[in-house]
Write a protein that binds this DNA or RNA. Structure first.
Length: 854
RNA sequence: GGGCGGCUAGCUCAGUUGGAAGAGCGCCAGCUUGACAUGCUGGAGGUCGGGGGUUCGAAACCCUCGCCGCCCACCA
């Protein structure tokens, strides 16, 4: 139970004034703590660990809003919900952050030393973890903080080690030299997925290689410095220009090495000169060609990206410097044929943005074939459902082309590879550091210096957080989880890997539904980024508009399209919506008496049309909100609730019952409270703060909204005839208002409606339009919508009538034209034709009414 | 190079099996109406990116072109 707040309310909604209090109460009362032993059906979501930059961005806000609305909704529908939070050590990102901090102090991590560096990292994680948690609380995220996990905590560490050992024992982990993406800044490899491609304006150089025994072959390259590591020249076997050269050798300029000319289908005849210099040590394609033809591999670069060409004048130079010098020297020797501008894509490290250098390195690899096949099968069998569906293809396409995963990183930060070598060279792979070598008994071990790719540990998230490999209650109760919601950019990096490891270690996909939300762009359509200055800080929005407004906006866009341009006015609009709810509540609470807020029972013989109508509309809105959430079309939910609340409940219903409320009419109070009660529940998953605040002011003993159950009003109050009748009221009122405005907006006025119009409808329409309903009215403007006429004390409204007539005539003309088409009558479905005929008849009647009234 | 998404009112976006185009914001006009000026009422504004086609009928389906964005890919 919660403490009832007083009926008297401040005049305006103020998000700042209510939000903090509610979150503290929710948490203190343990609303978010999941009970693994509960009898209720279980529902679980492990929140994707936010990137450890320490700052909340729009993506987080969006994602959190989606997760949290699902979590709250599921609790309200009677499920035991685990919404588990955590954060990630993000090795490369964190290392870069710390290095930047050090750089500002004029230090490098090497100068600082490993121990001090680790201390810095600790402090950073502590600070950032607290920041993230605080921000998620501000958003109202209903996470179970008792289960907060960190990918570097000791239990998680054990999960990671266990997974590594398990893969190793299956024979899937091996060490081998391959060409990899090397980041000279981080001095580490990164996986293909971590390479960010950017367009560069470079130069394509054409260089002559003399052929032994006479002649020459010209190649084209954008990286002339790599010729120092060339070990061959390749041409396409079909290329007639070079057929005679295959098998001969060229002399490598500047170096003097003799290189074979080989024929390989990978060479594009159309590109450049059709002859390719082969540098197996520094180009992935060249590496493959080299493998096929047994070419030598020359390692021409150091770990820091400088040239490794002992004996040559370029040795030790940075790559770009070497490039310049090589070009100059080639030119001097007359070997540079020409150069031309060339635009192409260059790989950069996705964390530090340094240009990635392909080079040969001995690394840890994980074989993916079996996991890949199982993941494909699971998806095809419908074990994982994608929303929107099209992303399943993104995922499957990537899986089908999957190669072995380079899981080792040469960083200072991360999970150390659990491979130990004893003093006698025996290798032990184990979760814990071995006591003694099982082969020789040695107790001196060296652990492999590499750490694991951060995504290796992230891949275990949905079960490592639940306690795997231990057989925990949480794992038993909540695995597999239900939903994973994320941005499409990490489908391959993260989602697919979770699916693969989940299937491998637990035998089941880690979640049933993958929900891909949109990407928020800046207002001008550019990417939101801090460096571009296009970012919008959600914390600013929170303080300006409140968490409920931000969440409502997020809900309205998250699944509506692939991308959305940020529009602050929409967030503001939802703050106004909160204010509208606030004031509707204020109006209802101001009604005298002590209403029960029980569900109104009356339906048969209900004397008030507006009561029957609004209950019917409520039923419809509730059904739409529910189906929106169930179908991952959250925008439908917020739209349905918003439209009902504002355009039906406030604009029409509350206006219609104001007088009854003031008079303390019990039926009006019952219906109004019932609608409000249900509306607050329908909105709570989206806007938790304002709904709990208003809810706590309603009469009766109340628990939190989230514990109150999801509205089930469907069916019971649906009332088509009330909807028809009230629809007629609205149409008449709107027409009368239009005439009043055209007449200059005088107060008062008289309305006569023929007795073919139901008297209840007529009376209500007259009341709402603020005109007197009379039996006789000679002068006045005829109505188009209903037989009758209206007059006002001043002005005539003739202009409006003429305009209306014109509109009706135009409409009728078009309608008759369509009906006059014999093909249409013959081929269109009968109900469509009948529909149109009704329409034409209605238009004719309206026109007749207008004519008769003149 | 392959694939995906988008192009609808001044702006941001809805429009779910093809049956005569909608919302919010902005704009114009009028309202200190006993919940709300964070409000109420009325109104203007669109040849649905261009061009073909299918159909009685296309914003929607097909083809094509043009922009914008994203994902994947070993063309030096």
């Amino acid at each position: 139970m919660i403490e009832n707040k007083p009926k008297e309310m401040p005049r305006a909604f103020d998000p700042q004034a209510i939000e903090a209090g509610w979150y503290a109460r929710w948490e203190a009362d343990g609303l978010f703590i999941a009970d693994a032993t509960s009898e209720l059906p279980k529902f679980a979501m492990c929140f994707p660990p936010p990137n450890i930059t320490g700052e909340l961005h729009m993506g987080h806000a969006l994602q959190t809003a989606v997760y949290d609305l699902i979590a709250r909704y599921r609790r309200m529908t009677g499920q035991e919900v685990l919404f588990l939070p955590g954060y990630d050590h993000a090795a490369i990102a964190t290392q870069n952050v710390i290095e930047k901090q050090l750089a500002r102090e004029g230090l490098t991590k090497e100068q600082l030393g490993r121990e001090k560096f680790d201390e810095r990292v600790e402090a950073w994680y502590e600070q950032v973890g607290a920041t993230i948690i605080n921000q998620l609380r501000l958003l109202g995220a209903s996470m179970d903080w008792t289960r907060l996990r960190f990918t570097m905590d000791s239990r998680y560490y054990r999960s990671v080690m266990t997974a590594f050992v398990a893969f190793y024992e299956r024979g899937w982990i091996y060490r081998a030299p391959r060409i990899v993406n090397w980041c000279p800044h981080d001095r580490s490899t990164i996986s293909d997925l971590e390479v960010e491609w950017q367009e560069h304006q470079d130069t394509l150089y054409y260089i002559k290689y003399p052929v032994e025994g006479g002649g020459e072959v010209t190649i084209a390259t954008v990286r002339p410095e790599t010729i120092l590591a060339d070990t061959g020249v390749a041409v396409n076997p079909e290329d007639k220009r070079y057929k005679s050269l295959v098998g001969k050798t060229v002399v490598l300029p500047l170096v003097g090495r003799k290189l074979p000319i080989v024929a390989d289908e990978a060479v594009e005849m159309e590109f450049g000169t059709g002859a390719l210099k082969v540098t197996p040590g520094h180009d992935p394609l060249d590496y493959e060609i080299g493998q096929r033809h047994g070419l030598e591999i020359v390692n021409g670069m150091h770990e820091d990206g400088s040239m490794n060409v002992p004996g040559l004048p370029y040795d030790g130079l940075p790559a770009l410097e070497a490039r310049k010098r090589v070009v100059e020297d080639l030119k001097a020797q007359g070997l540079l044929v020409k150069d031309e501008p060339y635009t192409h894509e260059v790989g950069h490290c996705y964390r530090c943005h340094t240009i990635v250098e392909p080079l040969i390195s001995e690394q840890w690899w994980l074989r993916m074939e079996e996991m890949r096949d199982n993941a494909i099968a699971a998806s095809e069998a419908g074990k994982v459902r994608w929303h929107p569906e099209r992303y399943e293809r993104t995922y499957l396409d990537w899986l089908r082309g999957l190669r072995d995963w380079n899981i080792g990183r040469q960083l200072w930060l991360g999970h150390r590879v659990p491979v130990y070598t004893c003093a006698n060279g025996h290798v032990t792979v184990s979760v814990d550091r071995p006591e003694a070598c099982s082969q020789c008994g040695s107790t001196a071990f060296d652990q492999d210096p590499d750490v694991l790719d951060t995504w290796f540990s992230s891949a275990l998230w949905p079960f490592a957080t639940l306690g795997w490999p231990d057989d925990t209650d949480d794992l038993e109760a909540f695995y597999p989880t239900d939903i994973n919601c994320t941005a499409r950019e990490i489908i391959n990096l993260w989602v697919s890997r979770m699916i693969m490891t989940g299937l491998e270690f637990l035998g089941e996909a880690p979640f049933g539904d993958v929900v891909i939300h949109c990407v928020v762009q800046a207002a001008d359509g550019r990417r939101m980024s801090k460096s571009l200055g296009t970012g919008v800080d959600p914390r600013e929005l929170l303080s300006k508009y409140g968490a409920d407004a931000l969440r409502a906006w997020a809900t309205s866009v998250a699944m509506s399209s692939q991308d959305v341009r940020f529009d602050e006015s929409r967030v503001e609009g939802y703050r106004r919506f909160c204010n509208k709810l606030w004031n509707a509540t204020r109006l209802i609470l101001s009604s005298p008496g002590s209403p029960s807020a029980e569900a109104p029972g009356l339906l048969e013989g209900q004397e008030h049309l507006e009561d029957r109508w609004i209950l019917s509309r409520l039923s419809s809105a509730a059904a739409d909100v529910t189906s929106g959430i169930e179908g991952f079309a959250f925008q439908d939910s917020i739209n349905a609730a918003y439209g009902f609340a504002w355009n039906e409940f406030c604009d029409w219903y509350l206006e219609a019952i104001k007088e009854r409320l003031r008079a303390g009419d019990a039926a009006a109070q019952d219906v109004a409270y019932f609608c409000l009660d249900n509306l607050l529940r329908l909105l709570h998953p989206i806007m938790p703060f304002v709904t709990d605040e208003l809810w706590s002011r309603l009469p009766g003993d109340r628990d939190y909204v989230m514990r109150s159950g999801w509205p089930e009003v469907a069916g019971r109050y649906i009332d088509p005839s009330a909807e028809d009748d009230f629809g007629q009221v609205i149409a008449i009122v709107e027409e009368v208002r239009g005439h009043r405005q055209a007449a200059g907006g005088p107060r008062g006025g008289q309305l006569r409606l023929d007795h073919t119009i139901d008297r209840t409808v007529a009376a209500l329409a007259a009341r709402l339009a603020q005109v007197e309903l009379v039996d006789e009215l000679d002068r006045g403007t005829p109505l188009a919508i209903a037989p009758g006429r209206v007059s006002f004390p001043a002005g005539s409204g003739e202009a409006r009538r003429d305009k209306e007539r014109k509109r009706l005539q135009d409409d009728l003309e078009k309608t008759e034209a369509r009906l006059g088409n014999p093909d249409f009558r013959e081929k269109a479905p009968p109900e469509v034709v009948a529909n149109l005929e009704d329409r034409a008849a209605g238009l004719r009647e309206a026109l007749e009414r207008l004519a008769a009234g003149e």
